[in-house]
Design a protein around this nucleic acid. Structure first.
Length: 576
RNA sequence: GCCCUUGUAGUUCAAUGGAUAGAACGAAGCUCUUCUAAGGCUUUGAUGUAGGUUCGAUUCCUACCAAGGGCACCA
């Protein structure tokens, strides 16, 4: 590693010059014009030993001394070393960059892999849509983040299991079933799955509204809720089964479009009893009775936490209890699991902490093996609450609208129809996923429909487009029979080369911090650099002796871009 | 009231305690007889307020102001 080499070099310089320095850093400067690596060693240096009454050293002078030593002893990877404003900047050599490009070409689609998590078993739970409710854009958000984190962890050597936890039971189901019973037309059994799912969504919304505004309806819904738990009403059981199947199938179509394949499906209904048993077994130890309900007074263990109900006074287990069961079940089905990651919205954070506290009292060994990652919400800008077709925006409608918008854009390009559909779908997914993943995970996303399916500038399609252009360069190179090679190097070092070799560092950081946006931001930078290179250079040119190297560079770019997009959960169409 | 997030160009987002705070959208101009113009090249603009720590603070600490979320039978 070149970074290690530079550090070693600095230490040698300090030793030889008899200078002491603290814990200096070696990092990439913000600006490429300031070199490839930079160190603050001179700023932290203590040169009192060398100073006399008449001579005091400035930081610039110290930097010059250290830089001078390194210049005299530099290895072939380093072109020059410069002092600027007290920093020492390292410029890497043409040879170094050519070597790094060759390395990427050799690694091909394995570029950026590391083994920090090698041998680790990790489960990532995400998406978690509820049957009988629409797949809304929040689910799209959790899915985009979860799938990306899962892939990043895989690229770091972990064996990742994808899990989906679905709320197939609870008041929301009762609301939807109440709506379906009141309006049988909504039980459209002939249409497509998507349509049926939408109708169930409508039924849910009727039920939710009635529950809020009408006392009698509220009572009816609560009755239905009890019957769903008890499974003792034939008609309700039938509607339940139908609605459950329809929504699950519709969700499965969406997962396919989004590029997610789950290994485990956990259902809330199955967790209720497991959780209840845990609560019963830990009565008085962890849980206590209060106003007829079973609660956990978390503030007794941590003043920042609060009391939560686990079993209601009506005897029904709450989400907290089911969560307890889910955790137990996850570790039971995967006893060697090293880490269980859960991805949900921020609003879940505070009560998940309470649940986590309860779990830590019951299973102290689980505590360190659980991680909760939360993301912000999709917030709408202005009153653009509706999609292109005037419907309320759901995750489903957004995906469809994005795809349609791309199809319009593609009318003047020639593709077979089947291919066209697939490309439009992949580009639409890229637009939406990228708009979610480009920013850090915790914050809200101010949601603008037009913006989220934009194809220009800072967007997913821009990345795909750069990749497609690189592909067509490579196709042309093949036709003209020019093979990639590293013999004759151009004099100029292109910006894109200065970025490509950093890809593994970016993956490493994303994996360490569970943050996809580092990759998203990096890819934009690389794409811009490549597009600039592409725009200002004729790459495939028989007259140009450096053309084989430029083609190799294009290969390296396409491998990094394709792999990076994969880590974001985005497909890279060969053509678009 | 208490707890958790978050305050950066007109807008939406970046910036492991470092240099001249980066992009994109928007706006103005240029650019396809060259491998995909969904592109490239110019120009324009910002750290909520007040302190503190530090050689150095958008970043860490304190207070205030503002926005969002959570605080008992919903998830």
């Amino acid at each position: 590693m070149i970074e290690e080499k530079i550090k070693k070099l600095i230490k040698e310089a300090l030793k030889n010059l008899n200078i002491e320095s603290g814990n200096f850093s070696v990092e990439h400067p913000a600006d490429l014009t300031m070199g490839d690596y930079s160190t603050n060693v001179a700023k932290l240096a203590n040169v009192k030993k060398l100073e006399t009454k008449n001579k005091r050293f400035t930081r610039e002078e110290v930097a010059d001394m250290i830089g001078g030593f390194i210049n005299r002893n530099k290895p072939k990877e380093i072109e020059k070393v410069e002092e600027k404003a007290g920093f020492i900047n390292f410029y890497l050599s043409r040879k170094f960059f050519a070597g790094s490009i060759e390395e990427i070409v050799n690694k091909a689609n394995n570029v950026g892999k590391n083994d920090i998590l090698s041998g680790k078993k990790i489960m990532v739970e995400y998406t978690d849509p509820n049957p009988f409710k629409p797949f809304h854009i929040g689910h799209l958000m959790t899915n985009a983040i979860g799938e990306s984190i899962a892939r990043i962890l895989e690229h770091s050597g972990a064996a990742v299991a994808r899990a989906n936890y679905q709320g197939d039971i609870g008041l929301h189901v009762a609301k939807a079933i109440w709506g379906l019973l009141k309006n049988e037309k909504l039980q459209n059994k002939s249409g497509s799955h998507n349509l049926q799912a939408t109708n169930i969504g409508q039924a849910y919304m009727h039920g939710a509204e009635a529950y809020e505004n009408d006392e009698d309806s509220k009572k009816e819904i609560e009755e239905i809720n009890k019957k769903i738990y008890a499974r003792n009403d034939k008609k309700i059981n039938e509607i339940y089964q139908w609605g459950f199947d329809v929504t699950m199938e519709a969700f499965e179509d969406l997962y396919k479009m989004l590029g997610t394949k789950f290994d485990f499906y956990f259902l809330e209904s199955a967790m209720a009893d497991i959780g209840r048993d845990i609560v019963n077994a830990n009565m008085d130890k962890v849980f206590e009775e209060s106003d007829g309900a079973t609660v956990f007074k978390a503030e007794k263990h941590d003043p920042k936490l609060h009391t939560r109900v686990f079993i209601t006074s009506a005897g029904l287990p709450t989400y907290e209890t089911k969560e307890l069961g889910l955790t137990e079940e996850k570790f039971k089905t995967n006893p060697e699991m090293d880490l269980s990651i859960m991805i949900t919205a921020n609003e879940q954070m505070n009560y998940m902490r309470v649940v986590a506290k309860a779990i830590s009292l019951i299973h102290p060994d689980f505590e360190k093996r659980m991680k909760h990652i939360t993301h912000g919400m999709m917030r709408f800008v202005g009153d653009k609450m509706s999609s292109r077709k005037g419907n309320v925006i759901t995750g489903e409608s957004l995906l469809n609208d994005a795809r349609d918008a791309i199809l319009e854009k593609m009318t003047d390009r020639e593709f077979p129809n089947e291919e066209r559909e697939k490309i439009a779908s992949d580009v639409g997914v890229a637009a939406i996923k990228y708009s979610i993943l480009k920013q850090s995970t915790g914050g809200d996303i101010i949601y603008d429909f037009e913006n989220s399916i934009s194809f220009e500038g800072d967007s997913g399609p821009y990345l795909q487009y750069s990749c497609a252009r690189a592909n067509s360069v490579l196709e042309k190179a093949q036709k003209e029979n020019i093979l990639p090679d590293f013999e004759v190097l151009p004099g100029e070092i292109f910006e894109v080369e200065k970025l490509l070799y950093r890809f593994p560092e970016i993956v490493f950081r994303s994996a360490s911090e569970y943050e996809p946006h580092f990759i998203a931001n990096y890819l934009i930078e690389v794409a811009r650099a490549y597009n600039s290179f592409y725009g200002n250079t004729v790459i495939v040119n028989k007259e140009d002796k450096t053309s084989p190297y430029k083609i190799a560079l294009t290969y390296a770019f396409s491998f990094v871009m394709k792999t990076g997009l994969h880590l974001l959960g985005i497909e890279a169409p060969v053509k678009m």
